[in-house]
Design a protein around this nucleic acid. Structure first.
Length: 406
RNA sequence: GCGUCGGUGGUAGAGUGGUCAAUUACACGACACUGUAAAUGUCGCGGCUUCGGCCUACGAAGGUUCGAAUCCUUCCCGGCGCA
């Protein structure tokens, strides 16, 4: 039935390592998935991606639907051919834009809440398009779907689960996601529950729409998405529900507070079928990825590596550093002496700092390459460690060095 | 030499009697960034401060005025024109 062949070959605690077969090749899991929202990883050529060890790329339905339009991608031969990436591909459903263009639009809230950020007093869905402008959002949710105002030209567009799946069929990725509602971490329990139940109804509609397309079902796999915010009871309930619908894989999405991420995973994962691949949507930072692996997640995507790089921050084994800071201007040392990334080994902090400060593309490219290579190597190392039964130590060592604590 | 226009914070460049420690941009300093509205955004950017202010500043020195970056005089410096 599924176009995927997933087999787990090693385990350590909840962590697992294996291979995920797709129509475009095998993925060794756990794996980090670079994000190429608009069918391109910002600043990184596909050939470079390959040299960095990337195995699969994730693009976005909302962005490609708006530009250039899914038909062009389809006519090109699908996402992979269009962008000249020969390996496996994934697409996100546009569910994240429900959040980023909705509740998060024009505000400082992000997917991950900090510390003790309190929930809002109330957070009901907005049902009336006419009040959209009053809400200052580009996305407005109703029970049937989401109405978007294009961030390009202000035109109005509508996504339903069926429409998202239709677009994702056209994009033709090996794996794609059900249309969901990604909530803000600041939403209160009642709203998280309401949104989760809506996501469940949309999950059912998404998988129905997919299975109705026999051809697509043969070559593309659909992942359902677990929601429920930071609440363990909702996470558990959501995992149970999503697991029961017959998806080819499971995504864990939505928002957390930093502290509750692990708890949310621990609540959800026992309810998930062991034999399905699990994707942790939008995660994350090095430490969070290792947490996910420890709890049994298989795939991770995150924009942080490339975005941070473009903005001047690079990962090092001793924690992230802001290369544009004055103190790095004269540091004639490798970006991270403990991490050699192919293609960037010869560059010094001083050089890349200069490139970044002078707004040269090369600075952004090198920093993005470095970060992508760093996080891919981190996950590759975790996989090897699981195979060799030393993941716990591997993780502890990394956390101690990176964050300075265990 | 005469005439004329101009000299503002690191730079460019607003302001042209009080609301000016001075718009804005860049530079500079720091912070943020987790399914990419993101080569982005936020804050700071004369000194001191008990955070209410105080001091020093708009080429220099005088002056007018309750009050001057803004008006007047002289000087210094620069552009242009005429000798």
């Amino acid at each position: 039935m599924s176009s995927l062949r997933f087999s787990i070959t090693s385990r350590e605690g909840m962590a697992r390592a294996g291979t995920l077969g797709t129509p475009h090749g095998e993925i060794q899991t756990p794996a980090f998935v670079p994000v190429g929202t608009k069918a391109g990883v910002k600043g990184i050529l596909p050939s470079i991606l390959e040299s960095l060890g990337a195995q699969v790329v994730l693009a976005n339905t909302y962005h490609l639907y708006l530009q250039p339009g899914e038909q062009i991608v389809k006519d090109a031969g699908g996402l992979g051919t269009f962008m000249d990436w020969k390996g496996p591909t994934m697409t996100d459903s546009g569910g994240f834009q429900v959040f980023s263009l909705g509740a998060a639009f024009g505000r400082t809230i992000t997917k991950i809440a900090k510390g003790e950020e309190l929930p809002r007093d109330q957070g009901m869905a907005v049902y009336d398009q006419e009040v959209q402008s009053q809400h200052g959002q580009l996305a407005v949710i109703d029970d049937q779907g989401v109405t978007f105002t294009s961030h390009h030209d202000g035109s109005l567009h509508r996504f339903t689960p069926e429409r998202s799946i239709e677009i994702q069929h056209a994009l033709g990725a090996d794996m794609f996601f059900a249309f969901d509602e990604c909530t803000a971490p600041t939403e209160p329990y009642e709203y998280q529950k309401e949104a989760m139940e809506r996501t469940h109804r949309w999950a059912l509609r998404s998988i129905k729409a997919h299975r109705q397309n026999i051809e697509a079902s043969r070559t593309q796999a659909i992942f359902g998405i677990v929601q429920g915010g930071r609440h363990t009871d909702l996470r558990k309930e959501s995992a149970k529900e999503i697991a029961s619908l017959g998806f080819d894989g499971i995504g864990i999405g939505g928002s957390f507070s930093k502290e509750d991420m692990r708890g949310a995973l621990q609540a959800a994962i026992p309810e998930l079928p062991d034999e399905l691949p699990r994707h942790f949507l939008g995660i994350g930072e090095p430490g969070d990825v290792l947490t996910g692996i420890a709890e049994g997640m298989d795939l991770f995507d995150c924009v942080a590596a490339t975005r941070l790089g473009r903005h001047g921050t690079i990962y090092t084994k001793r924690g992230p550093i802001t290369l544009t800071n004055e103190k790095h201007r004269t540091e004639f040392m490798p970006l991270d002496p403990e991490t050699l990334v192919p293609g960037t080994e010869g560059f010094t902090r001083a050089y890349v700092s200069h490139q970044l400060r002078s707004h040269e593309l090369l600075g952004q490219i090198i920093a993005s390459m470095h970060n992508l290579g760093f996080i891919i190597q981190l996950v590759d190392g975790a996989r090897e460690a699981i195979h060799e039964g030393r993941f716990a130590t591997y993780r502890e060592d990394f956390i101690r060095n990176y964050y300075g604590t265990v």
